[in-house]
Write a protein that binds this DNA or RNA. Structure first.
Length: 492
RNA sequence: CGGGACGUAGCGCAGGCCGGUAGCGCACCAGGCUGGGGGUCUGGGGGUCGCAAGUUCGAAUCUUGUCGUCCCGACCA
């Protein structure tokens, strides 16, 4: 069939693309580097967004919306941030088109309509937001300011990949302002924990919480905290970041407040974000050669019911039974779809919903109704079982919960098995090439060494884990003194 | 931005060397038989061959230019 998926072993990258395209998550578009997120993929994003939004609100944040465009003069205010993003910005220089006098039916940019000041399409919103915060913050009573926005941003990447790196992507960015350094750091860590909880509980994807080395730090941050996940091909993926920005942006945008002692000080800032890249992570974390495997907590459809019938009479009998079941499942909070489309036969549907990663499939035919059971199949293990129609909803709830746990454990077992200590350069190289995954090794703490390792191996320091054991050792490259192991990996 | 591949029906492709008015599979439409793992039969509809210029009586095919997409690399969430 045309819908066959390239296997992971044959071509991992093609496998990933096949899942996205054939699973109906997204499509290529007419715009280079930009994708169309299709309803099924968008539904996953909506589920992620709703859950995260709830968690943000539970931790005291409010949503707001800031402009897509950033005047260049604001953009350049925080030097490091500007420099970091400068080479991947889309810029608006004109505001009008006009008919091309030499080419009927075509349009050209009207040279008369050049903007006085160019507008940068936001690659991130610190600049426009901190310029706004200046007007909102005068006193410690205005703090903390805890704001999040759901938005799109544009980063003109050289090379894009569906969901993992697109020129335009959807994300959320939290931007908070605080009276003290400590409070800002607490906020940074709190949001990192929110992300980690989300990744593990909802995406069923184990993550390592850590701090970035200076090389990998967000442009303009004092510290970047991150969650790092491991994909099935042994490459790491940064799944979320939370930045402690110190007073850098407050100084750049002159955001001062009067404290309780009537002293003037700059505010302390954080920013944190996750993006539609999480969908890419989700896909790569669990899926197999038959298609997507979605965690029940984020699956747009948790249970699909496929009728199996001969003739209209049986169909009606099944319809009636399913109607009741469907109501029971819905009442139990389960997202259920009844696919009674007569254009496709059961086998086709089985394959289709496996490709789409629907966690549980229920097949029901006249035979089943006669014995008061249904056939239940779980996507993750492909195991089939017979379940009584009585009390089905409770059993399905339990099954969904088991699947959620089971795919998390599977991913965690794989991840844990792919964190390996390396104590020499040779061992490091060998592990990187043959075993892949995270490699815990000593590093002398310098950017030069990190650069050199990257140059030699393409591996970067993914993070310095927060729960690291302090343990002296020698840098695998230079032999310099090291206080702890850091995690290296090749990454997306 | 370097390297590679490719633009022909909605999708996947053949045809191109050797120029003569476009084909296959899937999908789609109508109907029948079917139905517990991607069924089958009959009959249909759909393409100015990425775009532009050139050569020619005649271009999907030859020439030149141009635009775009994907993959690999460097860069990055």
């Amino acid at each position: 069939m045309s819908k066959e998926i390239t296997s992971r072993a044959d071509d991992y990258s093609q496998w990933y693309n096949d899942l996205i395209i054939k699973g109906g998550l997204a499509d290529y578009s007419a715009v280079r580097g930009c994708m169309v997120i299709k309803p099924y993929g968008y539904a996953i994003w909506e589920n992620m967004r709703d859950q995260l939004d709830k968690m943000f609100k539970e931790t005291g944040h409010e949503n707001a919306y800031f402009p897509l465009f950033v005047p260049k003069s604001l953009f350049e205010a925080e030097e490091k941030n500007a420099e970091g993003f400068a080479k991947e910005c889309a810029i608006v220089t004109h505001y009008r088109l006009k008919a091309d006098p030499d080419n009927k039916g075509k349009l050209i940019v009207d040279p008369e309509a050049k903007l006085e000041e160019e507008l940068v399409v936001r690659p991130t919103s610190e600049a426009i937001i901190w310029n706004t915060y200046k007007g909102w913050i005068q006193s410690y009573r205005d703090l903390p300011l805890l704001i999040n926005q759901w938005a799109n941003v544009v980063r003109w990447e050289m090379r894009t990949r569906l969901f993992l790196r697109t020129a335009e992507f959807l994300w959320q960015e939290g931007h908070t302002a605080h009276a003290t350094r400590l409070e800002a750091i607490d906020e940074t860590v709190q949001m990192l924990n929110v992300y980690a909880t989300f990744a593990e509980t909802f995406m069923a994807m184990p993550v390592i919480k850590g701090v970035k080395s200076a090389n990998e730090r967000f442009a303009g941050a004092e510290d970047t905290y991150c969650i790092e996940a491991l994909m099935q091909d042994g490459k790491a993926l940064q799944a979320g970041t939370s930045h402690f920005l110190g007073q850098n942006f407050a100084k750049a945008f002159d955001v001062k407040f009067t404290d309780k002692e009537n002293k003037l000080d700059y505010v302390w800032a954080t920013s944190w974000g996750v993006s539609t890249r999480l969908i890419g992570a989700l896909v790569m974390a669990h899926s197999d050669d038959q298609g997507l495997v979605l965690p029940p907590k984020l699956a747009p459809i948790q249970v699909v019911i496929v009728p199996i019938f001969k003739g209209e009479e049986q169909k009606q009998l099944i319809d009636e039974k399913v109607k009741v079941l469907q109501q029971q499942l819905k009442a139990a909070g389960i997202k259920v779809k009844y696919d009674d489309n007569d254009n496709n036969r059961p086998g086709w549907k089985f394959a289709e919903y496996e490709m789409k990663g629907v966690p549980v499939r229920i097949a029901i035919g006249a035979r089943d109704i006669a014995s008061n059971v249904v056939e239940v199949a779980r996507r993750d293990t492909k195991e089939k079982m017979s379940m009584s129609i009585d009390g089905l909803a409770e059993n399905i709830i339990q099954l969904l919960s088991d699947i959620q746990t089971s795919i998390f454990n599977k991913a965690k077992t794989f991840r844990d098995a792919h964190i390996t200590n390396a104590d020499s350069w040779d061992e490091f190289i060998q592990l990187l090439d043959e075993k892949t995954g995270f490699i815990a090794a000593h590093w002398d703490g310098t950017s030069e060494t990190e650069d050199k390792i990257k140059e030699l191996t393409k591996a970067t320091i993914r993070c310095i884990p927060l729960d690291n054991n302090m343990q002296e050792g020698k840098c695998i490259l230079t032999g310099g003194l090291s206080q702890q192991r850091v995690l290296f990996a090749r990454a997306y």
